[in-house]
Design a protein around this nucleic acid. Structure first.
Lengths: 200, 200
DNA sequence: GTCTATATTGCGATAGAC
DNA sequence: GTCTATCGCAATATAGAC
């Protein structure tokens, strides 16, 4: 299904509004005023406010699914290399979609009912990917054998994603340069990796 | 200012509602119906919906301020010991206030205007505490000297807090035992510590 | 497809009886 | 201090002209 100019415009305007204010705090008038159209456009094109929100969410999540697909199919990489690839992808995706972290965080803490299932499905896949990659690392001796892979998977997701979730706040009390995203990710992953590798 | 039974009851009922649905998705009727009183009670006791929300937030944040005060005053501890103390406190506080993580996450992603400043003030203090403690660790040789303390501080906050923010979601695709909170915190902090200590 | 005008609902706040 | 009834407003959705 091809999207019209009006549909694209509405999604573009609605994305930062939903991300920063939350679904229920955004009025459809707010969106249509900025998009220089009228309220009925949302009902006509998206079957109401919830439909617009769903369209925004789906558009936000496409790069995550793609990156995960690539990481899984990349069988030539070692477990550690695959985790490194994941870390790099995180920085790249958040640079590409600066509002993604807010949508995830928002849907995790205050699920909307339509967004909840979408987030759940995707994050569950990320979790399983990290778990199984860590297990492979233990099996081939690169990773400490006494590691709890469930907790270690959450730790990695946390050390990488928390920064992007809290970035709007962090910026208020510490300066962040333009390339801070990649720098943080590299540094944080470095700490994590030194914490889990097997010292031979 | 001493709180009456009705005030305490309203705060108790409102806390999980605000935490799980978000400020704007909770109606005052919803709260007063569950609290077995009437709408006007909120205006009478808290000067409106926003006043009730502020009272809820303040009640949630008291243990963080207290823990930080104790950690700062504990000058007998080494930097590493003080970070360990902080990690233990995180698990304890979240066990004491199971909704705190949701309020923080919610206010960081979708600030309400009254909650925003409160969160900002407190989290800024936590950040400065972690930063300066890490710097002390570098100075006394316990911590790797090439560590970026700003990124390392965020990494620690992330590895510890992300779990509690996403816990409602994590529980949906992996089983968590009753003592998982403390277990996760110990394990995650262990990974982090091995990632930053100076191998002499 | 796009607009205006309106229907309808639900919200927070409050006046006033008790 | 607590209640009922109601006011006034802003929300989404939609009917119907163009």
């Amino acid at each position: 299904m091809m999207k019209t100019d009006t549909q694209l415009k509405l999604i573009e305007i609605a994305t930062p509004l939903f991300a920063t204010k939350g679904f229920s705090s955004v009025s459809v008038r707010e969106v249509t005023d900025s998009a220089q159209t009228n309220v009925s456009a949302i009902s006509y094109h998206f079957n109401g406010k919830e439909g617009l929100y769903q369209a925004v969410l789906e558009e936000q999540f496409t790069p995550i699914m793609q990156a995960l697909q690539v990481a899984k199919n990349n069988n030539s990489l070692s477990p550690i290399e695959r985790l490194t690839f994941y870390a790099d992808q995180i920085a790249y995706i958040h640079a590409q979609r600066p509002f993604l972290a807010r949508f995830i965080s928002s849907e995790v803490t205050n699920p909307t009912g339509y967004g909840g299932p979408v987030i759940e499905k995707h994050l569950s896949q990320v979790y399983q990917f990290l778990r199984s990659t860590l297990q492979e690392g233990i099996d081939n001796g690169d990773v400490q054998p006494d590691l709890n892979i469930a907790y270690a998977a959450i730790s990695l997701a946390g050390i990488l994603n928390f920064y992007f979730i809290t970035k709007p706040l962090i910026q208020k009390f510490t300066p962040l340069t333009e390339d801070a995203n990649a720098q943080y990710t590299t540094h944080a992953f470095h700490i994590y990796l030194h914490g889990i590798i097997n010292k031979a």
